[in-house]
Design a protein around this nucleic acid. Sequence first.
DNA 1: TATCAACACGAAACCGTTTTCGTTATGGGT
DNA 2: ACCCATAACGAAAACGGTTTCGTGTTGATA
Lengths: 339, 339
Amino acid sequence: MKAKITLKDIARELEVSISTVSKALKNSEEISRDTKEKIQAFAKLYNYRPNNIAISLKNKRTKNIGVVIPDIVHHFFTTVIRGIEKYANARGYNVIVCSSDESFDREVINMEMLANGSIDGFIMSLSSETQKKNDYNHLKEVTEQGIPVVLVDRITNEIECDKVVIDDQLGAYMAAKKMIDQGRKKIGIITTADYLSVSRARTEGYKKALMEHGIEVDESRMLKLSSMDMDEELIKDFFDSTDLDAVLCVNEIFAVFSMRLAQKRGLRIPEDMSFIGFTDGFLSQYAYPSLTVVAQHGQKMGEISAQMLIDKVESEAEEETYQTKILEPTLVVRDSTIN
Amino acid sequence: MKAKITLKDIARELEVSISTVSKALKNSEEISRDTKEKIQAFAKLYNYRPNNIAISLKNKRTKNIGVVIPDIVHHFFTTVIRGIEKYANARGYNVIVCSSDESFDREVINMEMLANGSIDGFIMSLSSETQKKNDYNHLKEVTEQGIPVVLVDRITNEIECDKVVIDDQLGAYMAAKKMIDQGRKKIGIITTADYLSVSRARTEGYKKALMEHGIEVDESRMLKLSSMDMDEELIKDFFDSTDLDAVLCVNEIFAVFSMRLAQKRGLRIPEDMSFIGFTDGFLSQYAYPSLTVVAQHGQKMGEISAQMLIDKVESEAEEETYQTKILEPTLVVRDSTIN
DNA sequence: TATCAACACGAAACCGTTTTCGTTATGGGT
DNA sequence: ACCCATAACGAAAACGGTTTCGTGTTGATA
């Protein structure tokens, strides 16, 4: 086992000072050509790499960014992470991923763990429990310490920081309008409780589309589940008790499950009933029939978040100016709606 | 903006030495009750938290573990990450996730980035390019430096370290046997090139099951794709040119896509044709019909990997003893096979 | 009264870098 | 022979902790 070699080791071996070694490896003008060549050769031979931790301590910069998201397994969030990771790595940053598992406590714990020097900034998406409690003190503390934060997708107005979202209201509007244009009149929505910022916006977009096209908003056609978790029974009951010819769902799982319910009742999709979901994942692509969805461009959101964060981290300026980036969703039309 | 408070700040403010503060906050017996109370109260008031980086430098322990996997978006790997993260967090470790994107170069770069002090150990799953090149020098270097490595799922015999896999051969065997027991005779397999350790093992399990039950192994019924990426055309051609009554696929995407092809040809599933895939993800659960799969227990694999790694990291002993943990897969029977 | 243990605390080294600010030679200029 | 600029290098502080090893003060003991 070859232990890692340090500046001190090189200095001792070559009988020069640590400072000389450090400067030589940085190709400083201060050091003579001879000495530099000798030191650099030795360093290469022994595969010297500076210790990141020591550099972090000195620079007060870790080149790590902390990502706290509600769920690592959900397709949308994984694409966000992929975007963050791609962009961050390209700029020499590592990504520390923590899942809050939709829990307020875990979100707080994770942030505290990371906020004590481990990272230069946060990218986060609020857990549902946090949005429900409406308690953002952990975020306030972090921003007050001067640690930059970028909120992505699940955001709040209570915190002043950079934000990246898609226009969820527009997405739902586009989806609902698509159904209306196809002649659907009895359009339902399966969503989650309003404390989730995205669900609220989507519900609004849905309502807006209906109202603009003279369709009455009927609360009985709106199913609000308490969380993003699947509740098969409630969805079944909803279908039993409601007469619909189209359904908009806030995620692809609800949508695909709903399609199966419809199919089991002998309905043809999309002839008898249309479906549109959110999130353009594998499920939508490979469902049968394939699902029309509102694509959220998670990877793009991740990249932009990472860019905003790193720019802020690296900017010397102390300006307290924040921006909110709103991306446009795209309707990906597949076989669950009439073309 | 309240900057972070340090031991030095507390010491200056309370007119004691830094060592006293440090000891007081650790509740050392050396410090008088009065002084301790004063210091602890002050620290709490100003919300003192020790700087992780400084501690890492001192201890030569970062409490970070590096995870390098081929793909963050693939369901199986996300469940592995979830398992790692859950276990690691519970033991006070953070997880730095890097995706190699199935690229050898990115795998090497990521490992080098992390190996210079950022992490205490690696959990990794080899990229397909790495398995194809059969070049593991980056792993050798890391292990020679004394950094513990746990290989998970995509492993190699070239490196001596702890390993966690499921019994892929058994999984494929169980799946093929299931089909045979249902009277299937013309059983195909859609897999990837043999350089991928898991695909090779699965192909062997498939062959073994056929041979043990007196069914001839027919190469024309075996489709080997060049990578895990979807190649719709090749799969279509395969179905056009091959007469099958059952298909085993090495992932759920191939399986679900294959089911759609069969359905489009008017075949009934599972009456006319059976399907089994690997990976128990959303796709399998919500496909129509739902897909029978070999569950790989990714989360369990992640947890075990993390446990093995952290145990090794924290063990003082210099023993060079490695183990390979082989988990048993489970056949999750759904509607794509006859019950 | 001299001795000594116990108590409470501080000085300093250390982890591995970076960087500022000396400190030596050396040689040129006068 | 003297002055001084310059080249080449080293000492030391700093980042923020932990930890070992003093050290000064007390009170009890012989």
